[in-house]
Computed example of a mutant assay.
Amino acid sequence: MTSPEKSATPTVGAVPDQLAPLRAAVRYGLVGLIALTVISAIIATSLAGLPGLWGTLIGAAVGGGFILCTVVVVLSTAHSNPGTAGAVLLGSWLAKIIVAIVVMVAIKGMTFYDKYALVGTIIAAIVVLLSAETYAILKLRVPYVDPMPESGQNDKK
C-alpha cells in the first residue's frame, strides 16, 4: 500500500497560497546573492586586492538590489488593484534606475574599486538572481484556476 503523495504547494485552507512562489523567489535570490558575493569577493580580492573587494560589494549591491527590489515590490502589491500595482512597479523601476545611475556617476572617477570586479559582479548577480527566481517559480506548482466547487454545490440558474 502506498501513501498519498504530498503536494509541493503550500496551501492556506483549501486554496493554494498564490504568493508562495514569490516568497521562495526572494528566499532563493537572497541565498544566491550571498553565495555569489562571497565567491566573487574571494576571487576579486585575490586578483585585485582591496579594490576587487570594493568592486564586488558595490556590484552585488547594485545588481542584486535591482533584481530583488522588483520581486519585493510585486510581492508587496499582490493584493492591490492592478492599476495601483502597475503604478508602484513602474515607479520602483524608475527609482531603481535613478539610484543605479547616481551610484555609477558618483563612483565614476574614483579609484578605490576595481571596475572589472564591479561589472563582473553586476552581470553575475543578475544571472544568478534571475536563475534563482525562475527555479523557485518553476519548483512550486500553484494552480492558475479556482478549485472546482464541491459536489452538490453547483451553480443553478
Rank of each mutant, 00 (worst) to 15 (best):
S46E: 15
L47N: 14
L53K: 06
A44L: 07
A41C: 11
G32M: 01
T56M: 07
I42P: 10
G55M: 03
L30K: 01
T56F: 05
V26G: 07
G52L: 05
G29A: 06
I34G: 12
G32Y: 01
S40M: 12
Y28L: 10
S46Q: 15
I42Y: 13
I39Q: 05
P21S: 08
G32K: 00
Y28C: 03
V26F: 14
V38G: 08
A35F: 03
G55P: 03
L53Y: 08
G52V: 03
L53I: 08
G55E: 07
A41W: 06
A48P: 03
I34E: 06
G52H: 06
A48W: 14
I39Y: 03
G32Q: 01
P51L: 02
L53Q: 09
L53S: 06
I39S: 13
S46I: 13
L33I: 01
S40H: 08
A41N: 07
T37H: 09
V26P: 03
L19N: 12
L33N: 11
V31D: 03
P51A: 02
G52I: 01
L47F: 14
Q18M: 13
G52M: 01
G32S: 01
R23S: 01
A25S: 11
S46N: 15
V31H: 05
A35H: 02
A25T: 04
L47Y: 14
G52P: 03
G49N: 05
R23F: 00
W54V: 11
Y28W: 11
T37P: 06
S40T: 06
R27V: 09
L33F: 01
A35P: 04
R27E: 09
Y28H: 11
L33T: 00
L22Q: 12
V26E: 12
G55F: 06
L30Y: 11
S40Q: 07
S40V: 00
G32F: 00
G52K: 01
L33V: 01
I39T: 14
G55S: 06
A44F: 09
T37D: 11
T56Q: 05
P51G: 04
Y28P: 00
V31M: 11
A35G: 05
Y28M: 02
A41M: 10
L36P: 06
A44M: 09
R23Y: 02
V31K: 07
A24G: 02
Y28E: 05
V26H: 08
P51K: 04
T45S: 13
V26Y: 11
W54P: 01
Q18H: 14
I42T: 14
I39F: 12
T56L: 05
L50W: 09
R27G: 02
A35M: 08
Y28I: 00
P21G: 07
A44Q: 07
V38R: 09
A44R: 08
A20H: 02
A48H: 14
S40E: 04
